[in-house]
Design a protein around this nucleic acid. Structure first.
Lengths: 143, 143
DNA sequence: CGGCATCCATCCTGATACTG
DNA sequence: CAGTATCAGGATGGATGCCG
């Protein structure tokens, strides 16, 4: 068995995100970002201009939007096209590679919307339980 | 049209992650985390002990693992069960709610493994292009 | 084993000002 | 319009030591 075959057998792929030295870690790190996910999700419906994205993704700053777009561009997930209008127009769009991600990204980004009520209930229960424990601690301390 | 109906019509759901004040943002923020994704993915195959997770998710520290597990527990995605062995055994497992996420999480976590080569190629092309631009800048500067 | 508490470095973010 | 540059400070992460 070759080395590659071994790794393919053991880890399903030649790469393994569970390994810290694996380059996939850096890629996952970039995808596992609130803003990157929202941008990719927003581009699913078609190309968008810089300020269009900034307007729709509430609370993102110009700096962070630029940074995130650059990273996505470097990883080959989005393209950046400059039109020589006056003033310039810049359009961002998904690449074919980026498009392979959108379904997954959309699922994750919108899971929160669909399950918000359940999450909120869980949080309330957790916090109530924590408060009860804290109360117990105080009583024990008094003894 | 009621307020809710309006929002359902405009945003597909009553919640909208694109809004900064929406509670779904915080949930997405917690999911959009490298470690949270790896933990959820790891739990898909069944309950895991604390140190088991720590061992398999390479490079995660005890502190971060604890923090992340607490957040996931608070959001109702994982359960924490303590067994009164000596010393104690703590087992983490997915809740039903958490289980609804694993397919999506797995897709995202492993997308990197499957597309690493394409991403690496894109990065190389991007970096080469950048280097060329920098070279041009130096020449312009000399004039 | 499965944590918590503390300290410290640093990375990231927000705010602001300027440009082609 | 679509950025770049800079700087202060707040959150975050690692290292370490202790505990039931």
């Amino acid at each position: 068995m070759t080395d590659d075959a071994l790794r393919l057998h053991a880890g399903r792929y030649a790469y393994n995100v569970y390994e810290d030295k694996c380059p996939t870690r850096q890629v996952l790190e970039r995808l596992a970002d609130k803003w990157a996910l929202l941008i990719l999700d927003r581009l699913e419906t078609g190309p968008q201009r810089f300020n269009g994205l900034k307007r729709e993704i509430k609370q993102i700053t110009q700096k962070v939007l630029t940074q995130t777009l650059r990273k996505l561009e470097r990883d080959g997930l989005v393209t950046r096209t400059v039109y020589a209008t006056k003033p310039v127009t810049v359009e961002y769009a998904l690449t074919a590679l980026g498009a392979t991600l959108t379904e997954t990204v959309a699922a994750l980004a919108h899971w929160a919307e669909q399950n918000m009520d359940a999450v909120a209930a869980a949080q309330a229960a957790y916090d109530a339980q924590e408060a009860r424990q804290a109360e117990l601690q105080k009583r024990v301390h008094r003894l």
